[in-house]
Amino acid sequence: MTTTGGPDETLSVALRTEALEQLLTERGLIDPKVMNGIITEYETNVGPLNGAKVVAKAWTDPDYRQRLLDDGTAAIKELGFSGAQGEHIVVVENTATTHNVVVCTLCSCYPWPVLGLPPSWYKDPAYRSRIVKEPRTVLSEMGLDLADDVQITVRDSTSEVRWLVLPERPAGTEHLTEEELVPLVSRDAMVGVAKVGAP
């Protein structure tokens, strides 16, 4: 296999990006309006709020929770979320004693329809390399200290299967409605590097 040389180091990546956009646009190979549509979609519509709605519904509707764990893709689609990088989503539950955490060591595969594009820490080589070798240490560095009796399962997303963590519902939220729970659910808890805290 050939390895390509890097770009000219004196040219900034922003300038090279602009150059590529010009080259393809002026030949009619891409449409700037389509480009802008893709950017807007991922800046505004496709993000972790979608996943938070899924989680809040699962916390308040036992039938939905069961459907979500049985067939994540279908249950997520019930709420209107599907699309690129969400062809087959498997949902796993975190509890007081079992903790799932998701990574993609080979690139940065991530369940876009429910979480949007991955945050910088998920794409960090330190995360990609170390979470599969010393997850307890890595989670601690990220601010999550798990008790010794918690069993950790690291999910490396090596195929087109995408994993979503159903976090544990925090104590003291029994009186909250589904709508009130949604803002509590963080992106990081749905990847498994944080827990959802009580309000």
Partner: peptide, 22 residues
């Protein structure tokens, strides 16, 4: 690792959004 940032934008700089779509 460093603790995750809560307020991170999807694209920190405009070129990143262009690069993603491109």
């Amino acid at each position: 690792m460093h603790p995750p940032r809560r307020d991170e934008p999807v694209f920190e700089e405009p070129w990143q959004g262009r690069a993603f779509a491109l």
